[in-house]
Design a binder for these strands. Structure first.
Lengths: 340, 340
DNA sequence: TCGTAGAATGGAACCGATTCCAGAATTTTG
DNA sequence: CAAAATTCTGGAATCGGTTCCATTCTACGA
């Protein structure tokens, strides 16, 4: 009987000693290697069970080169849309034996860059990310240096090897805009992030298409495409709503924008669905319960998260990189009435 | 000039070769060890810069025994309260060089247990968790076997070495209940999770105290203390609201419960603030913007997350385990009017 | 019966760092 | 100026596994 000291953790060495076999044999049994006799398997398994041995994932990772860990970088987990995506993604990754390291970039390119660097040092097997911007050369360089598969969320970066889960905002926004135009609106405001990310460009393309099809002109002065955060939307809602010919309708892109705009409108005493027609892109939980009920362009965050995980697992299995397109759906509710 | 092949990663070996020194010297320079001559430091730093060397965190972890990783186990990251906590916590941990592995337990004790086990195999330096239940012996055993510091969120487990961030729900709930009792309500329903977690017990204690101080009797049949999920609240709201003498007021504990209850009330056509006085424990983003405006017992999720990180860092530095108490605040809004 | 293919096992190198220990170089002390 | 103390540096062991290679043993066909 070997001198097993139970002060530290039980290692493969302890198991080998107890079973009276070589380290390599224990390893083979644990990993299900075919070159193992039934007798050997039984002896090792007995020792493993008796000692309660569990292989150290750190040591395994160092040797095998795979950490079974995926980095997940988003702007802000407290954004309910991202939270739903993250949850579905984590569940799916976990089902396949992967863990998720979560990092918030807080909307800062430097933080985002640092996060990528750190994930590289941690040797993660892959990264799922929603970039702050698509046109940052430093982030791009960092990503290339990762040499690990990448899945982008609603982003398109030229010259980058990556899978992506892309939302087709175009159709949803087109329907929403058409809905407003049909009701007679032309002074339509749009508040969302900058056009250096796919989602904004794609949304604007639906917006423009609707105007073009209706033979109407977009009033560029009513657009505020500068940031996804609530603060930006708050400030610009106030500014836009103070203009001389006031916009009669407002579309906000993203939950932060919607949140900031609603707060500003509330403070200004502007009632949506009455004084102003309002459409939100992306939904809140309980959109259908709270009043005023808000017209929205919906997307299935849970499906997006699961799909991101699938694309990642696919590439990790040696499969090809892919781009999945998720759809959006416009629902007219009370908030998009009135305003004229 | 050594034969540096740039096919793989740059290791400490490459740096040592280029600088013409021993591995140990490079290691000493990198870790800021005092026994290093200025000349040595300069040579090594030149080589590090020239090669772009970054130490492998995996290898460092294996040797040093510290992964600089904290596990974070919660029921559901898509719960906005947890999302805010997680974000603040991650930011704080990141500022101190730690990364966060996020795991959802989905309200299942088995999943929670598996998560703890996995975190142990990953050799995380600590775990921050909001347990599904406090009375599961299997989870308790698993936690003890972790032999890593633990910070509990709103939980008290007897005979467990752990720090904790505890919310003082008592006072907030007391005020809320008093508010309802003062208005003349006695048939007050309460829907939330089971009493095998601290938060429910502490909330019930405030609830009971208010009744006692008012000299009124609690109607036990109007309590539904069985689950934090929306589905449970949905079902029991329907049942409770169908009782012969209908409750005139309803308190829901937690965001899931509130969500399920609101949906049920909406379907049943019961208007809060008019047909029923309603108070929610924990807030949603934009509680003050949506209508009907909901009376609530608020707690600062951001502060809770940051505090959890602090407690963890404290213990990792060798400090003592502690328990921090966060306060709650009741705000009466429109939803708690009417009902009688 | 012997040579050889195949199965099973042990030994050792390796993944990429840290750290202890011994020895060389340098400085201080008597 | 020799001995001792101090400062640096290199070598080797170690963390806990995986995997290649060589060796032994068994079974098979010629």
């Amino acid at each position: 009987m070997p001198e097993e000291t139970f002060t530290g953790n039980i290692t493969i060495r302890d198991v080998a000693a107890r079973a009276g076999v070589a380290l390599s044999s224990v390893s083979r049994v644990m990993s299900g290697h075919p070159d193992v006799s039934p007798a050997m398997r039984a002896r090792v398994e007995e020792a493993v069970a008796a000692l309660g041995y569990e292989p150290d994932l750190l040591a395994q990772s160092l040797r095998s080169g795979s950490t079974r860990t995926i980095g997940f970088i988003i702007r802000d987990i407290s954004n309910p849309l991202y939270a739903l995506i993250a949850r579905a993604c984590e569940q799916e990754l976990r089902r396949h034996g992967y863990s998720m390291i979560l990092m918030n970039s807080d909307g800062s390119i430097e933080t985002e860059s640092k996060n990528f660097l750190l994930l590289r040092r941690r040797r993660v097997d892959g990264v799922i990310a929603s970039l702050v911007a698509e046109d940052s050369p430093s982030v791009k360089k960092t990503i290339v240096s990762l040499r690990a598969p990448l899945v982008l969320l609603d982003r398109e970066v030229k010259g980058l090897q990556a899978s992506a889960v892309i939302t087709d905002h175009h159709d949803g926004v087109y329907e929403a805009t058409k809905h407003l135009l049909d009701a007679g609106h032309t002074k339509i405001s749009f508040i969302t992030g900058a056009e250096n990310v796919y989602s904004t460009r794609n949304r604007m393309s639906g917006f423009k298409q609707a105007f073009a099809d209706a033979g109407k002109e977009i009033n560029e002065a009513l657009l505020a495409l500068g940031g996804f955060d609530a603060e930006y939307a708050f400030v610009h809602t106030r500014t836009l709503m103070a203009k001389k010919p006031r916009p009669t309708a407002l579309i906000t892109g993203g939950i932060g924008s919607t949140s900031g705009a609603l707060r500003a409108l509330n403070e200004m005493g502007i009632k949506i669905g009455k004084d102003l027609a309002f459409v939100a892109l992306d939904e809140w939980p309980l959109f259908d319960v709270f009043s005023p009920q808000i017209s929205s362009v919906y997307r299935d965050a849970k499906a997006i998260g699961a799909e991101a995980a699938h694309l990642m697992l696919e590439v990790l299995k040696g499969g090809p990189q892919k781009e999945s397109v998720m759809e959006t759906k416009f629902t007219a509710r009370f908030s998009s009435e009135g305003g004229l």
